[in-house]
Structures are given as C-alpha cells and as structure tokens.
C-alpha cells in the first residue's frame, strides 16, 4: 500500500499537463455549460470532437480513459433506459407495458452522450493535474469568496493535509488490521453485519491515533509559524502561459460554437 497513487494523476509533459490548473478548471466549467445547452446531433458532435481532441492532446492512453468510464456504465444505461421508456411521444414500437417513443430514443442518446463526455472530461482533468496543484487552483479561483467570509484557505489546507495523510493512515490501517488478526480477530467470515461489527476494533484505534496525529501536526505547524492564510505566499506561484491562452481560446470558441449551433440553429 505504500506506493498508493493519490487520485489518478499520471505525470507527463503534454500541453494539458503544462496547463495551469485554473485554466483546466475554468475550461471544464465552460464546457459543461455548453454541453448542457447542446441539442441536436451537430452540437453534440462538436462536443464529442472537442473531448476527443483534448484526450489526444493529453497523451493519456485511451484504455485508461475507457476504464474510468466503466465505473459509470450502469448509471449511463439506467438513465438511458428510463428516458427511453418513460418519455411520451410518437410511438415506434411497444412491448408489453413498455412503449418506446421517437422522443424517448433521442433523449436517451443525448443523456448517455452527456454523462459519458462529462466523466471523460473530468477524468482528463484529474489524469493531467496533480491533487496538489488542483487544490492550489481551486484555492485561487475561489479566493474572491473570502470576501463573504467563506474559509477558502482553510478548506484548501484541509484538502492538502487530507491528501498528505491518506497513505499514512492507510499504512496504519494495515498495521492495526494485522495486529487485531494476530489476536484472533475474524475479519473475513460472516455476513455483512458481522463483518461490519468486526471493523470496530480497527476503527477505534485508528480514530484515536488520528486525533493524536492531528494534535501533533497542529503543534508542528505552529512551530513553523503557521497562522492561517493571511499574508501567506507560495513556492510555486500559479502563472498563466501561452498554453493557457490557447486553452481558454479553444474552449471558448468551441463552447460558443456548440451554443450557437444548438440555440440559434437548433441543430
């Protein structure tokens, strides 16, 4: 468990990797709006093309992207089936109590494409951005919210620390599990409730030690002059470059294209 990867970041040097996390987050947001405005085959087609373009640019293996889609296949099928069967309209055929309509088929396809593109784009973001720079990007983007007293810095710091401690706590869980097994704890047999109960002797020590860790970490942070986000600078200041300008330009043009196609021409 020591070589656990955080999130699903794949280090690389592609243009998407070099892009500022803020650009990627904003672009994703703009693209999602466009995706939800899309209407006909032409606008959806453009969305698919844009996603394919981003995927090629990211140099992430197609297999990995498909694997991240596998997790949502049930949701896609379920949503598509519901839309297919329960949308009223012009009947194509009827089996027992289920009626498939032309509108239903259209909406089902649209929904499936929407969900797939949404997840594919989000995975591209997490594939090409390390959790740390993602946190940095979010903190900077959300920093205007500080004015209305949203503790943005504190949330970002919590995320950083949580990410830092995932491998540590996972190691610790393994140790405690082994220790309890050595004392004869039975963790593998029995029904769901019995197994859930068997987790208690693992969770209790884990919680106790997490609190101790949190306390020590807080002291250590104070010793290193931490006093909240005010006046804090960063080792890696986020900087926009040429690749970001290109990223924004392409995203805005494509999204505008999608919206115009869908809303003006109804395609």
């Amino acid at each position: 468990m020591t070589n656990i990867t955080l999130g699903q970041y794949l280090p690389g040097t592609s243009p998407l990797h070099r892009m500022d996390p803020r650009t990627k987050l904003c672009s994703l947001f703009i693209f999602i709006i466009a995706l939800f405005m899309a209407k006909g085959p032409a606008s959806y087609g453009l969305c698919v093309l844009f996603t394919a373009f981003a995927a090629i640019l990211s140099q992430v293996k197609l297999k990995l992207i498909l694997r991240s889609l596998r997790a949502i296949i049930f949701i896609v099928l379920f949503t598509a089936a519901l839309n297919l069967l329960y949308t009223p309209g012009e009947e194509i055929f009827k089996v027992w109590i289920f009626t498939v309509t032309r509108e239903g088929a259209r909406i089902a396809c649209a929904m499936a494409v929407r969900i797939i593109l949404l997840v594919a784009q989000s995975s591209l973001l997490t594939f090409t951005t390390s959790p740390m720079s993602l946190t940095d990007g979010l903190e900077t983007l959300l920093s205007p919210l500080k004015k209305i007293k949203v503790p943005v810095h504190e949330f970002a710091m919590m995320m950083t620390i949580a990410l830092r401690f995932i491998p540590t706590l996972s190691d610790e869980t393994n140790k405690i599990t082994s220790a309890q097994k050595a004392r004869g704890a039975d963790l593998e047999s029995g029904g769901l409730i019995k197994r859930a109960k068997a987790l208690i002797p693992i969770l209790v020590p884990l919680f106790v030690s997490s609190f101790r860790r949190a306390d020590e970490l807080a002291t250590a942070m104070e010793c290193r002059l931490y006093r909240g986000g005010e006046g804090r600078t960063r080792l890696h200041e986020l900087k926009y470059g040429k690749v970001d300008a290109a990223g924004y330009a392409i995203t805005v043009i494509v999204s505008a294209g999608v919206i115009v196609l869908a809303r003006v021409f109804g395609l």
Partner: peptide, 16 residues
C-alpha cells in the same frame, strides 16, 4: 510533514 511533495513541505515555514 504537511505537504505531499518534499520541497513544498520544506517551503511551508517560508510561505507562512
């Protein structure tokens, strides 16, 4: 250790 990258952790005090 606060950060999941060595150099960012070392930078913590300076950032503060």
């Amino acid at each position: 250790i606060v950060s999941s990258i060595v150099e960012e952790d070392v930078a913590f005090a300076c950032e503060n």
